[in-house]
Simulated assay, not measured.
Amino acid sequence: MVKSIAGPEIERLIQLLAKLPGLGPRSARRAALHLVKRRDQLLTPLASAMAEAVEKVVECSCCGNIDTRNPCTICVDTARDHSIVVVVEDVSDLWALERAKALNAAYHVLGGVLSPLEGVGPDDLTIDQLVARVSQGDVAEVIIAVNATVEGQTTAHYMTDQLEGFSVKITRLAHGVPVGGELDYLDEGTLSAAMRSRTVF
């Protein structure tokens, strides 16, 4: 066992940072050292912001978004078209669509995708809540905006089955050549999806 050269408080900071996505032990060590060396400019404000987030940030009971109010800012926005619900896997996907200003609609966060290998079943996601929203009759279209993975597509098919029988239009995001993409660099699956989803020019 390698003996720690830092105090237990710094070691705990490193271990917690290492649990963040994209940060391994080495990156966490560098980040912790950077924070500690710039305590007044970074560490103290960060600790304050995190404490405030713990106290104030909540999950929206309607869509699953993260906000400081419940229902969230998006759900109470009367300028949005709440008859269209965009279904996403995670809050990060919701934020990405909002940054792109893709559609002024409502959202529904699933909390993941179906994955039998990882033990994630329908009860672990918010599919039942989605069905309940649609059953109220206010939703005209459900846009399934999950990732184009095997698990994502399995989840999309399961949701479609669950929504069968309701008078709601079910659509999904188009798959294919990205803007600025070169055909030579794309994988076969993307090229096949693009060819199947071709449109009139």
Score class of each variant (00 low, 15 high):
104 N>I: 07
5 I>A: 06
166 F>M: 09
72 C>I: 07
185 Y>C: 07
131 V>R: 04
21 P>Q: 13
106 A>C: 08
59 E>M: 14
119 G>F: 02
195 M>Q: 15
15 Q>H: 09
184 D>V: 15
178 P>R: 13
24 G>F: 04
200 V>K: 15
35 L>C: 01
73 T>K: 15
166 F>S: 10
201 F>K: 14
21 P>V: 09
125 L>I: 00
94 L>M: 12
101 K>Q: 10
21 P>Y: 07
117 L>N: 02
33 L>Q: 04
178 P>F: 14
79 A>M: 13
57 V>E: 10
192 S>P: 05
186 L>G: 08
7 G>C: 01
176 G>F: 12
107 Y>S: 13
85 V>L: 15
40 D>S: 13
105 A>E: 09
53 A>D: 05
37 K>R: 12
45 P>D: 13
51 A>E: 15
9 E>D: 06
87 V>E: 13
159 M>T: 15
190 T>K: 09
109 V>L: 03
45 P>I: 12
147 N>C: 01
189 G>Y: 07
48 S>V: 14
22 G>A: 08
50 M>P: 10
61 S>G: 04
40 D>K: 13
83 S>I: 02
113 V>H: 00
83 S>A: 06
185 Y>E: 14
155 T>F: 01
19 K>A: 11
13 L>C: 01
149 T>I: 04
185 Y>A: 12
133 R>Q: 07
189 G>W: 08
64 G>E: 03
87 V>H: 13
47 A>H: 14
122 P>C: 03
87 V>Q: 11
111 G>D: 03
175 H>K: 11
88 V>K: 02
25 P>G: 11
177 V>G: 08
49 A>Q: 12
59 E>A: 14
127 I>Q: 06
21 P>A: 10
100 A>F: 00
138 D>Y: 11
116 P>G: 02
150 V>D: 12
138 D>Q: 14
27 S>L: 02
81 D>A: 05
186 L>W: 12
25 P>D: 11
35 L>A: 03
192 S>C: 08
57 V>N: 07
152 G>Y: 01
167 S>Q: 11
136 Q>C: 06
180 G>S: 04
113 V>M: 00
61 S>C: 03
20 L>N: 00
69 R>F: 00
156 A>W: 08
109 V>Y: 00
129 Q>K: 15
132 A>Y: 07
43 L>R: 04
140 A>M: 01
52 E>P: 09
200 V>P: 05
164 E>Q: 14
102 A>P: 04
74 I>T: 10
38 R>C: 05
103 L>W: 11
4 S>G: 04
80 R>C: 06
